[in-house]
Structures are given as structure tokens and as C-alpha cells.
Design a protein around this nucleic acid. Structure first.
Lengths: 247, 247
DNA sequence: CGAAGTGTTGAAGGGTTTCAAGCATAGTGG
DNA sequence: CCACTATGCTTGAAACCCTTCAACACTTCG
């Protein structure tokens, strides 16, 4: 049985990294049929919302964030096409974070019963869910390292590297650059810095001839040097190809 | 069918938080029969080790860490009884981090085939794996917030709160305190600070009459005030009780 | 008793924040 | 077409949290 290449970026990721069968991939694709379009800069879900469905980002950029009482905000995940916005909704009564769009987005909603049915029918899909959670884990772990031990310059360079690899996996990047719709303010909320310092750090990377960044377009001028500045290893983003997880 | 209360802290966690059936809990317990004992301060796995099995911590404290080229180290997870040390081993060829013991530990090793068999036979166990990954996710997310946006004092207070709740779930804490075998150096590696600053921050919490900490024993003198100082909400650690995930 | 690890303290330095202002760009309405 | 406004980017100077370096005290243990 052959299936023509899907436009669904989640399917693309699962095909590339997990070895799911065509039948299972088709089932995932079918499950993503309830699609809605959201404008830029709007809430997908708010912190504390009841968790009765899971959202898959099909197109556009979004982010997961937590706000503190005094207004400080930390972005805890950048969501790209093919990412699940709120996996925790599977087991949490209410979500401990909010999700908002950066650009216009297409989002598929999968209800709890739909997912139960899917995972019961095919073990591979159940394993794919575990894989998705673990893939997120690895990104979160790397962010922990960046936030805890890396300088602003290293951290920013690392983020730009991570985004290149993740976007490439779902066909949203060219070899030497990509469109990045984040303001310096948003970058600051990701990096745990102020936008002022992000600005200066960005200038540092530009001055070193590592990157060019203008009008929301990042060009990587020296990939080896950027990777070195970040101490970046891409392995953690590409795990899964080793063991097939199909049922 | 009734099962007498298990000494296995992973079973305790799954029973309390996920609603797995007794049969499934028994299967998990049986799978943890290959136990080894490790002395304090030794490697469970090293960064880059081949990932052919998964380790479950049955007793003692351990931690997951990443080292940078110049010697900086970030601890990316504190592992308590009932925690899985290296879930990523399920899908990664090599582990992107190391795991070491803090105290003497008892650790169960589950080989890849064992796990495949378990998850194929019982959907509930497959879902439990996803739940475990998501539970880790929530902790990692909260650490991101702490590292990115909270002050040293808030962060330290938050960690002490988190540990009380997590230890309580597996019966390793009293209502107002617990044994904490971490040196200030280790705390610093968790918090992304220096041990000097951890020392001063700890003194601040003592001076405010929030905690007492001597000879590896933490006593919480004012739980509401400590929670307030940390802006701590325990919900993220107790998710799962809402939806049963049994197969 | 000496050695090693852990906790404590002081003083100086640095990376990042804060505050404040100025500039550019894009969209809006008169 | 041109104010006018809003938003984001840039820059400077001062302040602050945390680090660095260095020294000393305490405990444990061979």
C-alpha cells in the first residue's frame, strides 16, 4: 500500500522520525480533519482552560507561555508546524499554561474520545504519542541547559540553530536560513532576557558575521561558526530514526 | 482481584495518579524485578551511552545532568523513587545526558524487548508511559519558568516546594519536611546558580523563618509563606487523577 | 593528625536589567 | 497626501543581581 506524500507536517515528522506504518500515518492524517484558522496574535487556549481536546499546529507559528503574578512572562515552547500545542491536555484537568499564535495559523482539534479510539485501535499510534512527548522533553531539557548555564550569546545562537533543524524537518527552511516571525520582545520571552539585551546580543552575532536578520528573515552566514558559538548538537532533535516504533 | 499495597514507588505513583488496573500495576511491578544496588555518587549511565534499556529508580536520589565543554554543568532533573531515569532511551540511539546517584540507590533495569512486550499486551501500560513522559514535561516546563524568570530566592523556594509534593506522592516526606541529601553545590547545579549564591539565598530563607535546614534535613516552618515566596502551585505535579487512562 | 569535602564570609567585578529617550517603519484617518 | 499613532528597533547610563576569587571554619574519615 502506498500513500502519496502528505501536506500534514505532523505526518511528515512521524514518517521521517518514527517509522510508523502507512496505515497508521493515514489514521493520524484523518484524525486531523477538524481544522480551524486563527489570525495572528490570538489565544489558542488560555491558562486554566478545561482540557477536553488536543490541538495540532498544521501551519504557522505559535508559542506556549506561563505568566507570573507580576506580569513576567516565560515562553516555554515555540510551536512550529507539526507540533502538538497541548499534549498535557491528555491527562490534566486544566492546562497549566496558555498557547497563542504568532502568525496566522491552521490548527486541528482532536477530541479526547477520538484519541482514545485511535490509540486503542493501533499500538503504533499510542507509541507515537509517547514519542511526541519524549521529543518535547528533549527540547525542554536543552532549554533548561541554555537558561541555566549558557550566556545570552550562546543561548540565542542555540535557539537559531534549533529552529533551523526543526523547521527543516517539516520543510519550512532552506539550507542557509528561514523566515522567523518573532519580534525581539518575543525572543526575549523565550530566552529569559529583556528585549534590550536581545537587541544587543543580536548585534553581536551580526558583527561577528554569523547571521543576517532583517525583516523577519534569518540568513545564516556561517553555520559551523554559529553551531560552535552555541555548542549546538542536533542529535537531540533527530532521535527516533533508530528504533522503529510501529505496532 | 485485590493486590496488597506495593513497596514499588513507581506502582504507587501510577496507582495514585493514573487509575491503572490492578492487573496492569502488577505487570509493571513484575517488570521491575531486575534490580541492582548502586553506591552513592556513581554513574548510572554516561552521556552518549547506547540506549538499550530503561532504568527505574526504586530507592534513593539521583539526577540527570548535561555537561558543557568548559566544565559548566546543569542538572536537568532530580530523580526520586518512582521516577524513570532515562525515558528517552526508548527512542534515542544514544542518551544526550548522564545520570548519577546522589545517595545509595536501588535501580530496576527494563530492557527494550520487555517494554515492547508489556506495551503491546496492555494498552493501559502504553498510556502510562505517555503519562510518565508528560509528567516529566510539566516539571521541565516549570523549571524553565524558574530558570528564565524567577529570582534565586523564588527559584530555591519553588524547588523545595516541588520536592515536598513529589516526595509525598511516594511516601518519602512528612507533612512539614523531608530528608534532602543535596549539597549546596548540587543545589547550585539544579538552580543554575553558583554554590556561593545558593548559600546566601538559603540564609535568606532561614532568616525569614520559612525553613530550617541542617544536616540534610529540611523542616518547613511556614508552608503558606514558602509557597507564596515561590509562587508555587502544586497542580502541575498532580495531574492525571482526572481522566482514568486504564486500557 | 592530616586531608578532603562542605559550608560560610567579604570584596571586587561583570553580565544583564532598568529607565529613558530617540528613531524607523507601517498602518489610519482626515 | 500628510499628519498622527502604534509598534518595534536602537542606544546610553546607572543600578542590580549574581559571579568570581580568596580565605577561613567545620566536619568527617582514614
Amino acid at each position: 500500500m502506498t500513500v502519496e506524500p502528505s501536506k500534514n507536517p505532523l505526518v511528515a515528522r512521524l514518517r521521517l522520525l518514527t517509522g510508523l506504518s502507512d496505515t497508521e500515518l493515514k489514521a493520524v492524517e484523518d484524525a486531523c480533519s477538524n481544522v480551524s484558522r486563527l489570525p495572528a496574535d490570538t489565544n489558542v487556549i488560555r491558562e486554566g482552560d478545561p482540557a477536553d481536546r488536543v490541538h495540532v499546529l498544521l501551519d504557522g507559528w505559535a508559542y506556549r507561555y506561563r505568566d507570573l503574578a507580576d506580569g513576567r512572562r516565560q515562553i516555554v515552547a515555540l510551536l512550529l508546524p507539526g507540533d502538538v500545542c497541548d499534549l498535557d491536555a491528555l491527562y490534566a484537568r486544566r492546562l497549566p499554561y496558555g498557547v497563542s499564535t504568532v502568525t496566522r495559523c491552521r490548527v486541528a482539534a482532536l477530541t479526547h474520545p477520538t484519541l482514545l479510539e485511535l490509540t486503542s485501535a493501533q499500538v503504533g499510534i499510542s507509541r507515537a504519542l509517547t514519542w511526541l512527548a519524549i521529543a518535547e522533553n528533549m527540547v525542554l531539557t536543552e532549554w533548561n541547559v541554555c537558561l541555566g548555564r549558557r550566556s545570552a550569546r550562546e543561548h540565542l545562537a542555540h535557539l537559531l540553530c534549533e529552529l533551523l533543524v526543526r523547521l527543516s524537518i517539516v520543510g519550512r527552511a532552506e539550507p542557509n536560513g528561514y523566515d522567523i516571525p518573532l519580534s525581539q520582545e518575543k525572543l526575549a520571552e523565550v530566552l529569559g532576557l529583556t528585549s534590550v539585551h536581545v537587541n544587543r546580543t543580536l548585534q553581536g552575532l551580526r558583527a561577528s558575521q554569523l547571521i543576517k536578520l532583517e525583516s523577519q528573515r534569518l540568513t545564516i552566514l556561517d553555520w559551523p561558526a554559529l553551531k560552535a558559538a552555541a555548542d549546538f548538537r542536533s542529535a537531540y532533535l533527530q532521535a527516533g530514526s533508530s528504533h522503529a516504533i510501529s505496532g
